[in-house]
């Protein structure tokens, strides 16, 4: 900790206690800004929708807050008895990303099920339509579907 420092308690993702004005700080802030702006861009382009847009937006803000106000990380780390503080970042980052990956897998499973059901329904309806057409022009040639 550096109490009484003139420099705002700012740092980057990889905290360097010995050197608060380390250029890494700007790298951290820059990276957070890039992530945040990328998410905004993806949402604007409609390539990221719904709750995942919000999730990554908030994550981007979180990165930014941690990069600018790194004392937060120190406070959390010392409260949990984790040292060095960057370990806390990795720890929670890993938990967060694992949770997101599991959630996405669950969603993919559900969507696979839905796609399967849709494809089956399509196959069934198409066959019924073909059967109806064949019945319709009984005398004529068998209509070939698809």
């Amino acid at each position: 900790m550096m109490p009484g420092s003139i420099i705002p308690p700012a740092l980057m993702l990889l905290y360097d206690e010995a050197d608060a004005v380390s250029p890494y700080r700007f790298v951290g802030i820059g990276l957070a800004a890039v992530i945040f702006l990328s998410v905004i861009w993806l949402i604007k382009k409609r390539r990221l929708r719904g709750e995942f847009g919000w999730l990554w937006l908030i994550t981007g803000v979180g990165y930014f807050v941690l990069a600018v106000w790194n004392e937060l990380l120190e406070i959390v780390a010392s409260a949990l008895g984790i040292s060095p503080p960057s370990t806390a970042l990795f720890f929670f980052g890993l938990i967060f990303l694992t949770a997101v990956a599991v959630e996405l897998s669950v969603r993919i499973s559900k969507q696979s099920e839905q796609i399967k059901n849709l494809a089956q329904q399509l196959a069934i309806l198409e066959a019924e339509r073909t059967a109806a057409e064949v019945k319709g022009d009984e005398g004529g040639g068998v209509s070939e579907a698809g």
Binding site: K116, A119, Q120, L122, A123, E126, A127, T130, G146
Partner: peptide, 12 residues
């Protein structure tokens, strides 16, 4: 004939 729009596997 029931046609799947894509390959979904034997079980499906």
């Amino acid at each position: 004939v029931l046609r799947h729009p894509m390959n979904l596997g034997y079980g499906v």
